[in-house]
Design a protein around this nucleic acid. Structure first.
Lengths: 144, 144
DNA sequence: CTAGGATCTAGAGCCCGCTCTAGGTCAACG
DNA sequence: CGTTGACCTAGAGCGGGCTCTAGATCCTAG
C-alpha cells in the first residue's frame, strides 16, 4: 500500500502533539486504552501511527469531559475483539452520551447558582449597602 | 425573633434530605465547608438549621459540577471572615464560573464526538455493511 | 431502667488518575 | 567511539474525595 510514507512518531513527539505526558501515555497503554499494540523499533521504542494519535486525541477529549478510563478501556476492548459486537459498542456509547448530558445539566445548574451569587455581590459592591445580601452565610451573620 | 420554630435537624435527617452520607457531612465539616460551627446539643450531637441545609445543598450541586472542595472551603472561609472581602469572593466566583463554562465546552465537544460515533454505528447496524465504518480502530482492522 | 439505634471522634482504607523514580537500554551527534 | 538525551519497565507515591472502622456516648421507646 503506501510504503512511501508510513509516518510514525516517538512517544515524546506524541506527548507534545496531544498534550499529555509520556508517563500518562504509557499509563494509558497499560490500562488498555489503545486498540492494538503500538509498533516497536528493534530496540523496543514505541512508534505511534497517525491512527494511534487520532484515537489518543479522542480519548483525551473524552477524558477532559470526565469519561472514566474504564469506559475508554472497555470500548477499546470491544473494538479489539473485532467485528460482531457493534451493538455492545453502541450501548456503551449511548450510556456515555447519557452521562455527558447529565453532567452538562449539572454544570448549567452550577452556572446559574454562581451567576446569581455573582450578581448579588456585584450589586452589593456597586450599591455599597453593607447589609443583608442573600447568602445563607450572610443571613447568619445578619441574624447572629 | 421566631422563637416559635427554630427548626433543626439531626445529621441523619440532613444526610437523607440532601442526599449524601453522614460520613460525607462530617467530612465536609472537617474540611471547613460550613460557614459557621454547627450547633450542638448538650450531648454533643449536631443540630443543623435550615440555613445550614440550604448551604449544603448549594455545595452539593456545585460539587456535582466538579467544583473542588477547596474552592468551596475558600469561599466559606471568606464569608466566615465577615464583611469587607466581597471583592475576593466575587473573584473566586468569577474564576469558578469560568471553570464551569470551560467544562461545559469540553462536555459539548465530547457529546459531539460520541454522537458522531453513535451515528456511525447506527448506520452500520441498520445498513448491515460489514466494512469500513470510520473509527480509528476499525480502520486499523480494515487495513491489517 | 434497659436495650438498641443514632451519633460522636480520629484515623485508616480505598479508588481514581496520574506522576515520579530507579535502574537500566538505545541511538544520534560530534 | 563516547556522550548525552530520549526511552524502557515496573512499581512506588500522591492528591482528591470520600467511606469505613473502632470504641465510646447519647437518647428514646418500651
Amino acid at each position: 500500500m503506501d510504503r512511501a510514507g508510513p509516518v510514525e512518531f516517538s512517544i515524546g513527539e506524541v506527548a507534545s502533539a496531544v498534550g499529555i505526558s509520556v508517563h500518562a501515555l504509557r499509563f494509558y497503554e497499560r490500562r488498555g486504552l489503545l486498540v492494538g499494540p503500538v509498533r516497536r523499533t528493534a530496540g523496543g521504542r514505541r512508534r505511534y501511527t497517525e491512527i494511534d494519535v487520532d484515537w489518543l486525541r479522542i480519548c483525551i477529549r473524552l477524558r477532559a469531559a470526565g469519561m472514566p478510563l474504564t469506559a475508554l478501556q472497555r470500548f477499546a476492548a470491544l473494538v479489539r475483539d473485532g467485528p460482531g459486537n457493534e451493538g455492545e459498542r453502541l450501548a456503551l456509547l449511548d450510556a456515555q452520551r447519557e452521562r455527558v448530558e447529565e453532567q452538562i445539566r449539572a454544570l448549567e445548574q452550577a452556572r446559574e447558582i454562581i451567576a446569581w451569587k455573582v450578581d448579588t455581590y456585584r450589586q452589593h459592591l456597586e450599591g455599597g449597602n453593607g447589609g443583608a445580601l442573600w447568602d445563607p452565610a450572610a443571613d447568619r451573620e445578619a441574624n447572629g
